[in-house]
Nucleic acid binder design. Structure first.
Length: 290
DNA sequence: ACGCCCGCCTGTAAGC
DNA sequence: TGCTTACAGGCGGGCG
């Protein structure tokens, strides 16, 4: 912990959610839901009642685990989908038995017939769970998430197409990267890391990029996120982000800009600065990013 | 169409 | 030392 400087907080973004998705694959696919306990109704606020949420899950078997941006998608055997959003501080915890003590702020508990539980823990309660009913013919799998843009790791595209998308907006680059309707899964932390890797300022207009800059940005976006997934995500000083088994990620040590105010740029040794943009902290190297 | 606010929350730390 | 205030931010909504 550094002296005299506020610590930024790590929130789950695409790499952290993807890490949890991969862990869930081996842990809950094929398991049947015996019981659901909702301990904080705010967690299931899209449903008319906690009972309604429970009824849509109990007796169902989990058949697949997907991800769309920062949302986890647990496919159910009736065609429905349990959607999990971790918000700012949400965690999923795998418990071997109901007897394991519950962490504070455990808002929902899913028990499986074969034993074991999946627990949703979320101090700030920005996260949520909801069940999306089986879609009608021709409907998207989860209509509630139809507004999300492309997924940077799942939906590969040519840089030329990315250029067309960028040019169709006249927004600051960081605001656009964080716009979930444009591209899904990038939050404040990875936006700063991607822009550092691309050598571009947060306030460059998306329509102002040269073809070389577009290629650099696309490559930086994909490679930064893929490398963070390899390292199982980022856990900052507060260690808010934990994986399914309570372990921290490894990517925070690779950060070039985010949460490095006052430290030397790893590329040019000038000082990383923090500015406010849209009410949020933005970290950058004013020498490397133009 | 875009930037920028607010409100929702709690834990942490800075300020007095 | 202890209380109060500010800050962190994902997301939806409102406003200019």
């Amino acid at each position: 912990m550094r002296w005299g400087m506020r610590e930024a907080e790590g929130m789950p973004e695409l790499p952290e959610v993807e890490t949890i998705r991969r862990d869930l694959q081996g842990e809950v696919v094929g398991r049947k839901i015996k019981a659901v306990e909702v301990r904080n109704g705010r967690t299931v606020r899209r449903h008319p009642s906690a009972k309604h949420f429970r009824a849509r899950l109990e007796g169902r078997t989990v058949t697949s685990i997907g991800r769309s941006g920062k949302y986890l998608l647990l496919g159910l055997d009736d065609g429905g989908t349990l959607v999990v959003h971790l918000g700012m501080s949400g965690q999923l915890q795998r418990a071997k038995s109901a007897k394991e003590p519950k962490a504070p702020h455990t808002h929902a508990v899913i028990s499986f017939t074969q034993g074991g539980q999946l627990r949703f823990v979320d101090p700030r309660t920005f996260g949520e769970l909801f069940v999306s009913a089986a879609p009608a013919e021709g409907e998207p799998a989860v209509p509630e998430l139809a507004h999300l843009g492309f997924d940077p790791l799942e939906d590969v595209m040519s840089w030329e197409k990315f250029w067309v998308l960028l040019a169709s907006h006249k927004a600051g680059l960081k605001a656009l990267l964080m716009d979930q309707e444009f591209v899904a899964g990038i939050g404040n932390m990875y936006a700063d890391e991607i822009l550092f890797a691309a050598g571009l300022r947060y306030d460059r207009l998306s329509s102002s990029l040269s073809s070389q800059e577009v290629r650099r940005l696309y490559r930086a976006m994909v490679e930064t996120l893929a490398e963070a997934v390899k390292r199982r995500g980022s856990s900052l000083a507060d260690e808010q982000y934990r994986d399914l088994f309570g372990e921290v990620g490894d990517y925070q040590g690779q950060h070039q800009a985010y949460d490095r105010e006052g430290q030397a740029c790893r590329r040019c040794r000038s000082t990383i600065v923090r500015v406010k943009s849209g009410g949020r902290s933005t970290y950058l190297c004013e020498h490397c990013q133009v």
